[in-house]
Design a protein around this nucleic acid. Sequence first.
DNA 1: GAGTTTGAAACT
DNA 2: CAGTTTCAAACTC
Length: 510
Amino acid sequence: MKSPKSNGYVSPPEIRSPFSKFINDLSPIKTSRARPSLCTQRLTESCFPIIPPVFNSPQSDTNQPTNFLQRDGINWSSSNDCDHSEVVGQYQGVLEDETIVQNQANDGGVQTSLVEISNDESLDRMLEFSSEFLEHQTMLTQVLQSNNDHVTQNMETQQDVSCFNQLSTPCQQVVESKYSSERKRKNETYTYKIDSCKLCNCKRSNCLKLYCECFAAGIYCEDCCACENCLNKPDYDELVHDSRKKIETRNPIAFAPPIVKPSSDSLTIGGDGNTSNLSARHKRGCKCKRSKCLKKYCECYRAKVGCSDGCHCENCDNSFGKKSEQRFKRVEKWMNQYHEMPNTAEVMSDSINVVTSNQLSPILEELADVNHLNVSTHGQSRAVPSLTSHDMRGIQNNPQAEPKQGTNLHWWYSALNSKQPWPSNVSDESHSFDNIYELMEDGFPDMLMGNSNPSNTVKSSSPNQKRISPPKFPSIEFGSNFLPGLPTARKLVLPTNQAENDHQGSKNDQ
DNA sequence: GAGTTTGAAACT
DNA sequence: CAGTTTCAAACTC
């Protein structure tokens, strides 16, 4: 983890949404009664990975010095300092001191604001959280161990640091929170140590371009870097800032966390036994051609995440998840979640009647295609393992008919087309869901996302392209950017500046 | 450690 | 926006 110096670095804000309270209410373990050391059984939102703000690029405010981090002296705590119970305990301390986090955010580092989010996304989010509730205990234990190892390795290389930065696991927050909290209390400069100190190796970029790993990571180069003619130093702060600004002009998310984790998916084990985040993915995607996404040339592989549909790689064989697998896995997971949430299904069950069979067929074909299934959307074979041809026939022949409860596609239909006001306890919470548009975009075939029409395309990889619509949710209000009947209102939590700009731009578009 | 390969970033 | 060049890391020998 890079050491934020006292000059403006702000950790991603920890946002406790109303939804976390909702989830909390579901938890049989009450926060107030749980011992800190039992954090793994708690269901505070903070125990879930908090999505690092995708657009949390350090602010390019001329009134504010660059947010580059100073690496002075660097002393990570010993491994003993990071034993699980202690970390968790400290984490609790941080959680209960939310004002610190929020004040930090309000100081200009990272601010958030609300934009719209749709109720179908809300359902996705709810499903995500619900299933994660069941699996989170195991996951968190794994992650705690995993990140504990990370910290105790003393950050042997810069890459370790980068990797640590990029990971967005609950434990990362644990560690980050702990150290930032301690630092704040003691009013200490954030320091850490890198034993093997050969960071960047730049020769011609002056370490002022993204080629430079230090620069790209938002930190100054150190003496121990092997770079030549380095200008990425506090002495050249202005140059650094200008260069940064220039790059951000070209690509607003250039300095955003490279790994986007749209939801707190559980860890999964890749083909080579590596653990990775199923849903985490590279903000931009890779374009590998020859490496098959199996070497560190591949940014996705390097970050230990699977390739996604946002990647333009060829012959993808990423052991953390191939490009075509991710979408199917996510759909499959949704379907499983549907089975586990009959109440939700009931809530939604009245609202099936929208997607036509013509619209559906390509979806099923695509789903099958990504999983190399031979699918006939005319009911001859199965689109996905859990969808029977009978189900499909029923749906296709009579899209207005309500499939029997438990039919996976039923849920999908319903989620897509719900015109029902949400139950109060759901709709109330849905205002605060953040960063889940990616999940939706990934999980739903493009045509359902309106992506088949280029003019409607909104890529999650760009902060300037967030979907925003009138603040009508949860009332019945349907936009036109998606399929007829698809609600489009959505709320996203985004850094203020960009959100405002984008929102403004969106208004102008409308 | 030198040379090659690779893919992102930058440039045109 | 596509094609090309530059760059530095990853990889190979």
